[in-house]
């Protein structure tokens, strides 16, 4: 196992409650979410086909894919509704002042 490295990817002011944005770390596309002031991170690309979940629709704790409507749990990455059956990876978040840092295996 390689160590987790934290990268500053966005500012807390970049996303309102209930919003998501896509960030790129290395070659990885990651979605950062703000759920009532707490930030979460998952893989941004849906496990069904090619769509950015950051463009999706957040409802409660889940994100609905903009392409075909598959839902994932933002906190755990779990695939919740068809067509998705494969979970998303989730990443650790740290907040440092105004910076959002996401932890990715180095």
């Amino acid at each position: 196992m390689s160590d987790i490295e934290f990268h500053a990817v966005a500012k807390t002011a970049d996303l309102d409650d209930g919003e998501a944005i896509q960030v790129i770390v290395g070659k990885k596309e990651i979605a950062i979410y703000n759920l009532e002031g707490t930030y979460y991170a998952t893989d941004d690309i849906c496990t069904h086909a090619y769509a950015s979940l950051a463009d999706g629709y957040i409802e409660g704790d889940s994100i609905e894919c903009p392409l075909h409507g598959g839902c994932f749990d933002i906190k755990t990455g779990k695939a919740l509704t068809p067509p998705v059956t494969e979970d998303l990876k989730v990443y650790e978040i740290k907040i440092d002042g105004e910076d959002i840092l996401v932890g990715v295996p180095g």
Binding site: D55, G56, E64, P66, L67
Partner: peptide, 8 residues
């Protein structure tokens, strides 16, 4: 090109 509004 506006899938989100379709969900709404």
């Amino acid at each position: 090109d506006n899938p989100r509004d379709i969900r709404f």
